[in-house]
Design a protein around this nucleic acid. Structure first.
Ligand SMILES: [Mn+2]
Ligand SMILES: [Mn+2]
Ligand SMILES: [Zn+2]
Ligand SMILES: [Zn+2]
Lengths: 144, 144
DNA sequence: GGCGAAAATGCTACTATGTTGCACAATCAT
DNA sequence: ATGATTGTGCAACATAGTAGCATTTTCGCC
């Protein structure tokens, strides 16, 4: 019993990539779209639980992989051992990130990507630049 | 039976950080100093095996952690799930890196760190910037 | 609306990477 | 040389991610 007509933003995004609109994908994407920061697999899983969306750990991994491969979401490595995921509201993943070294939060800094006018040594072929700023977020920086 | 007098570069580096000069530390540091690229825990372990240096997996983790905490080495997260370690010949870790998306190699680009003249949004407090360039290394870029 | 091929999901098991606790061994200032 | 301090080795544990495969869901098509 799927309601047919008005496609939500999440649904549109998925369809635009030629993917099937499924419970998990829609829910995950909604979580990411609503998130202020990049989220780990676990955090997303917890958010799905909160929404009452039953899901499997592995499916969630695969869903996130699909979102990244489709260019809808992006994945960040992170100093701790967890990858973080997020959606850039505006198009592809062409922006810097801020990583709070105290609380570990990662936020997208949309609209700023530095002119990386670096001269690469030899036959290196540049595809893209990834810039991560480290420091303290507003919340954590209070005491400093 | 440790030979006493002429301290090797590795030994000096270790001593300069107030650490004890041990078989594992010296060997690991020599491996890192000789390496062209950043190396994973496993690669370093294999290099130790080649050198005939008996070692324990956990000790290697702890040795690498110590080197990083001491500021002698640096750690990179990496898209695959392995951290890579390297020493910056010249002082602390203030340089960009190049990550080959085809073979996964990571090399330090010493002497280039971009002026990150980004204007941070709110109360963000910047400590350092981390720049990773992605693309193809000279070896992998041949066919393109 | 029902059919069926293609795609996604849910299991179970497995791998890879990193950690913890603790007994024992090596280092180095004295 | 001695002994407090630091580092090592081992075994067990923890966490993050992957693989294979049977079952279910989606969606274009009639
Ligand atoms: Mn982002
Ligand atoms: Mn480096
Ligand atoms: Zn913070
Ligand atoms: Zn390469």
């Amino acid at each position: 019993m799927p309601q047919t007509h008005p496609a939500t933003p999440a649904e549109s995004l998925i369809a635009a990539q030629g993917g099937r609109i499924t419970r998990t994908r829609v829910a995950v994407l909604e979580v990411l779209l609503a998130a202020e920061q990049s989220l780990t697999h676990d955090e997303i899983g917890a958010a799905l639980d909160d929404k009452g969306i039953k899901h499997d750990r592995v499916t969630l991994y695969r869903t996130l992989d699909w979102l990244v491969e489709s260019g809808v979401a992006h994945k960040m490595a992170g100093d701790d051992r967890a990858r973080r995921f997020g959606v850039a509201a505006s198009g592809p993943h062409e922006h810097a990130h801020f990583h709070c070294d105290r609380c570990g939060k990662v936020v997208c800094l949309e609209g700023l990507q530095p002119a990386v006018a670096v001269n690469l040594p030899g036959g290196y072929q540049l595809d893209r630049a990834e810039l991560v700023l480290h420091g303290a977020c507003p919340t954590c920086g209070k005491g400093a």
